[in-house]
Design a protein around this nucleic acid. Structure first.
Length: 527
RNA sequence: GAGAGUAUUGUUUAAUGGUAAAACAUCUGUCUUUUAAGCAGUCUAUAGUGGUUCGAUUCCACUUAUUCUCACCA
């Protein structure tokens, strides 16, 4: 057990735990048998009001120090030890970190008031990585480094039981132990901070425009709003007879948000985690975050302006971080002059050199595929064929931020359509755009279909296609949503952006797990 | 769902059909102004099973773990 001794009126803990070996490898046992010393209640350690380290720095960084190079008024600082540098038996330097800010501690046996031997043994109780409370005088060292010169023994607040690796780069080890990754790799921490800053900017943008932030259901009977396989679960309390009704996790919040617009909330947005039971790769995780907003009486053109405005603000804000400054600068320039625009059908014609089929049907599109020698996708439905055209001819053109707009209406059953004249005739196109950057989709937005009659018709068409092509991912129509529409969805602009990809892009990373706090689903499962 | 790779100490990297090397970390010293410090010393490893071989960490097979790519998708 720990002996406590009195030295010149003050009580000190001395020195070695009896019969304990102070090796890191055995530290857990030592800690276990001296538990109350290693994990005391915080209030017991604070004999005066503590300062956060950033506040301490801002108070003393520009301080005009007296001859003695210190101020004889005790301060209390708390944080984690990042470095220990011994310099002789009676003197030790440590770096203490809190709130991403660092300050040096100077420990000297004379100032603390104990013998060198006592001092040395006491200091040996501390390891790089321990959380501690330090009390002492603010001051500077001979070379001018701001420090806290301890007047009392350092106090243990919570120890680390394993030595931190000096480096951790192996992907497997990093993502399967994110705690250590964050302690070791500052970039891993910075990526999470950048994400926070991006989300803050988005919230500020919408708040400044009088949007309200809402939260809509994640669990429901029929997940809708995107083509994707849902995760299925059930509730103990939602049953049909004795059988639980299967519930789905949302694949998109879209239909709930539009119901809110019908209900009179004219400007809503949601930062929403969505769930899709699909493959995992560098740019896909089964759960991911989108921001969606809906604003009544808003056109496609207004949606484009809002998109440029939001990305402008994000790019301005993200100049303040080292890891995002390069991308943010590019984006700032591009969003202030406005993004390039590609209109779907004319651009396909330009790229293929052939006029678009007059009828947008499966057979005419397949014929078109043959003419341009494009291999057919595995599911040869009209939406899939059109999507293939886009990913082959349009999306690769979108290295710089680019809007692709006026997609044929068959691609988006929830979007409002209009008839437009092109060289080869007139077409039903969606009042829709997608924003692509470096060939990746970032934003999907459209004027919402607001006729319950049209919506019911498009849902029916979608089901026909689904049955013909056995496309399991097409959701069942949400007839209750169509019922809600009968109360009058105003002409509404709806918009969604993937946050994970935005973070990956701005931080110039290649993989989605880098911007997820605990990696992708396989990483999460292992932690 | 299909394919390609990887596995050496706590970490990050070497090398080799015959004694596995280094840096950092750990541990032991040392230093009263250090800057994730210096100096001296110490400790720790070939994923598992089988095969070829006088001898396998190295070659082969299987297993396990894991990474990546493609497909689906945002």
């Amino acid at each position: 057990m720990l002996r406590s001794v009195r030295v010149s009126g003050r009580r000190f803990y001395s020195l070695k735990f009896e019969n304990e070996v102070l090796e890191f490898a055995n530290r857990k046992a030592t800690v276990k048998s001296n538990h109350s010393w290693y994990y005391p209640p915080l209030s017991q350690l604070r004999s005066l009001e503590p300062m956060r380290i950033p506040a301490f720095r801002s108070k003393f960084d520009q301080f005009h120090w007296p001859q003695s190079k210190r101020v004889d008024e005790e301060c209390c600082l708390e944080g984690r030890i990042h470095s220990i540098r011994k310099s002789g038996k009676g003197m030790v330097f440590m770096d203490l970190v809190q709130d991403n800010s660092k300050v040096q501690l100077v420990l000297m046996n004379k100032m603390i008031g104990c013998s060198k031997d006592e001092f040395g043994e006491y200091v040996d109780l501390f390891r790089k990585g321990d959380n501690v409370v330090a009390i002492g005088f603010p001051g500077v060292t001979n070379v001018g480094e701001l420090s806290l010169k301890l007047t009392q023994q350092l106090k243990m607040a919570s120890p680390i039981l394993h030595p931190l690796p000096p480096k951790l780069t192996d992907l497997e080890k990093r993502h399967h132990n994110k705690v250590v990754d964050y302690l070791v790799n500052s970039r891993s921490r910075d990526l999470i901070m950048a994400r926070s800053m991006i989300l803050q900017t988005i919230r500020k943008f919408f708040e400044a425009r009088d949007f309200i932030e809402v939260e809509t259901p994640i669990l429901s009977v029929n997940s809708n709003g995107a083509n994707a396989t849902p995760f299925v679960t059930h509730s103990k309390h939602i049953k049909s007879g004795d059988d639980p009704i299967p519930l789905q996790l949302r694949v998109a919040p879209e239909l709930w948000l539009k119901r809110l617009v019908i209900g009179g909330f004219d400007k809503v947005f949601e930062v929403s985690r969505v769930f899709r039971n699909e493959g995992i790769d560098a740019t896909h995780n089964p759960e991911f975050t989108t921001v969606e907003f809906y604003q009544s009486f808003t056109t496609l053109e207004q949606l484009m302006e809002l998109t440029e405005g939001l990305l402008l603000e994000i790019s301005q804000r993200m100049q303040s971080m080292d890891i995002t400054i390069v991308r943010a600068k590019e984006l700032l320039q591009q969003s202030s002059i406005g993004f390039k625009k590609l209109e779907f059908i004319p651009e396909i014609e330009k790229a293929t050199g052939l006029p678009f089929p007059q009828e947008v049907t499966e057979s005419s599109l397949l014929e078109y595929f043959d003419k341009i020698s494009l291999p057919r996708p595995s599911i040869a439905s009209v939406p899939q064929l059109l999507d293939k055209l886009s990913s082959t001819y349009l999306e690769p053109q979108c290295v710089e931020p680019t809007f692709i707009y006026h997609q044929p209406s068959q691609m988006s059953p929830l979007s409002k359509a209009t008839t437009l004249e092109y060289t080869n005739g007139s077409y039903e196109v969606s009042r829709r755009f997608e924003l692509f950057i470096q060939g990746n989709e970032f934003v999907n937005a459209y004027e919402e279909e607001n006729s319950p009659i049209e919506q019911a018709r498009k849902f029916a068409l979608q089901q026909q296609e689904k049955n013909i092509h056995h496309d399991e991912e097409t959701p069942l129509p949400d007839t209750k949503y169509v019922d809600s529409m009968e109360y009058g969805l105003p002409p509404t602009g709806g918009w969604g952006m993937g946050i994970d990809r935005l973070c990956v892009f701005l931080s110039n990373e290649q993989r989605i797990e880098e911007v997820l706090t605990f990696g992708t689903l396989p990483d999460v499962v292992r932690q």
